[in-house]
Each structure stands twice: as structure tokens, then as C-alpha cells.
Amino acid sequence: MAKKKALNIKQRGSFRADLAYLSMLLPGLAFMFCFNYLPMPAIIMAFKRYGLAPVPKDFPIQNPFIYSLFVENPWVGLQNFQFLIRTPSMGDYVRNTVGYNLIFMVVGTVVAVAIAIGVNELRNRLAAKFYHTVIFLPYFLSWIIASYVVYAFLSTNGIMNNLLVSFGGATVDWYRTPRYWPFILIFANVWKHSGYSSILYLSTLTGFDQEVYESAAIDGATKWQQIRYITVPLLTPMIVLLQILAVGRIFGSEFDMFYSLPNGSGPLAKVTTTIDVFVYNALRTGAQLGLPSAASFFQAVVGFVLVLTTNFIVRRFDADMALF
């Protein structure tokens, strides 16, 4: 009865309702058009030799960029990509990007899962809440603030050097010593993100029926066994989901972090420059726009393919875990 009524109303107001709904979509569509869909055709820059040319009077769109890119600029095939591959230290940038991402995925997941389990198991709930609130805080501070923190600790008269001296050691010029930076970057990344991802894991844990743990305990399972055979399998779908997303971003990087923490120090470039940082630097130097557009295209397309592929693999493995 109620269903029939709803159906009638739906049919009666259908066209008018759809119009109203469409009008609600407009602001969002405008934003996506400007910042997501409008840039998409411009990826053809990767296959052209870009240069700004004046627009002829009779061209319908009086915009030098659109005219140059779609009419005037010559196609150069894969030339930009060939130059990109031949760029010195390109190998370092790719290694940094992919390598750091893989390490962040492993270390970040282990730490976040450990924090989530710890917060869940602590006897004192108030303390657990306090700890988690504090651990979550860095997520809301910018990388620029983090770079100030790093500076206060690592600059020549920073806290680390003061501590080293007071323990009778020699000072270290941190901003000129590349070998420490992989560890600094990994620590900083985990520091900033473990609170966020542990919330995702914790929300899975708190929604779970405690009786399973209780019956496991009655059957004599130790705490460790419960974590190993109940908690971790319970968290696996979320872990897999987050890894899918992370794999899709494996050729991207957190630009703000890699750009601001080393504070523009030349000697560190070899271990801290990622593809994103290279793209930005090349774009702002502006000499050869072919390089950054090719690198940017590569990131976009490979990222897209990677998300689709990993999702496909996960779906074959377990449909419930797939993203879509």
C-alpha cells in the first residue's frame, strides 16, 4: 500500500523532481568542470612542443593557451618521454618515489594497526582516548609546521646537536648529510599519518562483537592468539582497501613533505627528490615544459591503470574487499 503510494508520487513528480535534483548538482558540477575535467584535455601537452602563440582574430576561442595547445603547437610523438628518460638522476627520482611509498605502506600499516590494537586493548579507557587524541593531532598540522619542528631539532644549533654535544659527541650537519634522511622522512610520514589510519582500523574493531573474543578466551585462547587469529583477520579488508588506494598513488608523493622538510638543501636532493618535486621544479624553471608535462602524464595514466588493476586483482580474490 505504502509502496504503491510512493510509486504514484514518484511518477507524478518525476520530471519536476529530476529537474530540481539536477539544479542541486550545479555548483558541484561547476567545480569539477573547472578543476577536474577542464585540465584533462590538456594532458596532450605531453605529446606536443608547447609554446604560447598569439590567437588569430577569426579563431572562435580568444584564449592564447587553448589556441596554442590545440591548434598551433606541433605534435612531437614520444620525444618528451625520451628526453624525460634521459634526464640525469631520473632513476633516483623514480626510486625515491616508489621506494618511499612502499616503505610508508609497510611501516605505516604496521604502526597504525599496532596503535589501533593498543588503544582498543588498554584497560584505562580515558588514557586510551587521550593517547589517541594526541597521536591524531599531527594529521592536522601542515608539513610546513613539521618542517619548522625538523629545523628546530636538526639545524646546526638545534636540539639534536645540543644533545649530542652534552653527551660528549660531535655535532652533525644534518641538512648536508643525506644518509640520515630516509629515516627522517619515514619517521615524519608515520608521525603524521598513523593517527589517521589507526582511526580507520579502530572503527572496524569497536564495531565488532565482543562475544567472539569472550568465547575465544573461554576456550583458552591467549590474548596474543586472539589478536593473531581474530583481530588481524578482522582488519584485513581495511588493510587491503588502504593498500589499493596507496598502490594507485605509488608514482605520486606527498609533495609538501618532500619539498619542505629538506628545506631546499642541495646535498639532500639525491635522497629527497620525488617525481612530484621534479615536476614542480621543472615547471617553475619553465625552460623545458615537455619534461614536466610528460612526467605529469605518466603519473596520471599509470596511477589510473594501477588503481584499476589492483582493484581488479582484489575483486578476483575477494569481491567484498574491492573498492568498486
Binding site: I43, M45, L69, D276, V279, P292, S296, A300
Partner: peptide, 12 residues
């Protein structure tokens, strides 16, 4: 899923 990247965003 798909992001055109920094360079197109910059120019647009």
C-alpha cells in the same frame, strides 16, 4: 580515480 596532474592544472 583520474587526475590530470599538476601541469594541466597549472596552465588551466
Amino acid at each position: 580515480l583520474f587526475n590530470a596532474g599538476v601541469v594541466p592544472f597549472y596552465f588551466v
